[in-house]
Amino acid sequence: MTTLNTAPNIPQPDDFYAELLALHEGRSKAESDAINARLVLILANHIGDRQVLRNALKAAADPGGRRSAGPEGHARR
């Protein structure tokens, strides 16, 4: 599968979201940055598929997918 799944895929989304926030509870900005970076790397490795990863990077940078449409990325709304 090389398409990025952007349909809802996480069971009990509220629980997951709470766990994600709990991860950062009481941490300094530096600690949180480090955790986030490790998390990105762990998840990226789990996915592995370069095409999916590329799509995920793109989606993260530009969720509306419009930036590439206009000159110098100013096409957003």
């Binding site: 940055d33 480090a34 490790r38 990105v40 790397l41 762990i42």
Partner: peptide
């Protein structure tokens, strides 16, 4: 640097 250090931290265990 944050990502570099994250890679190094993880490399110890994974």
């Amino acid at each position: 640097r944050i990502f570099r250090d994250a890679v190094l931290d993880l490399s110890e265990h994974f």
